[in-house]
Amino acid sequence: MNAAYEFVVGPLAWIAGAIFVLGSIYRLVSMYALAVKKDYSSLPYMDLKYSLRSIIHWLNPFGTAGWKASPWTAAVTFIFHICLIITPLFLLGHAVLLETFHGIEWPTISDGLADGLTMLVIAGCIFFIIRRATVDKLKYITSGMDWFVIFLVLATFLTGFAAYHQWLNYQFILILHILAGEAMLASIPFTRLSHMIFWVFIRGYMGSEFGKVRHAKDW
């Protein structure tokens, strides 16, 4: 069990991190190259000011037609994403690993807060799963990939939660948690989770077209 633990926090963590970082860079660079080659009727219209205008408006959960039409989904989406990013980044347990292995000091949030945020992420996953399984318009469009990404997130946070509370076999759950987290990280560039790295550009493009050419709101 110890050897397995050593492996998942050692080499496997490096591999997952490398896939995430290098994979993201590769995706961004190759996508840009493709846009230059094939989307030149769109690319020159990109505009920083109007990209930001669009992004800022869509970061307001009450500020757009789409969010307003589905307020519950909007609320859960925001809470889910905020917690999803903050919790792993500033969790004490993660910071300890960083310090132990690399001597890097890292800001942290309290365990109590992290516990709460984790529950919110799990609740968010459950909301999305129920929504996807029951709402007609979602059932119509859902594919395997949609289930994969949401269960990957759920698995990571559920095992993290269980490990923190030392449910079942602590070390086994912990290894599962690390594996799930690494799988999630490595999946980001190559699955639907890639919206994390591409969102600002897609949003920015729409914002640019609407701002610069169409002189209209895109929210």
Binding site: M31, D39, T77, H195, F198
Partner: peptide, 27 residues
Amino acid sequence: GETGAKLKLYAETCMRCGLCAEGCHYY
């Protein structure tokens, strides 16, 4: 020949959230 990053990104990153539905008069 005629499509590139735009179509690729739209197909890949659409989260199938269904929020667009309310935007359509047909729906």
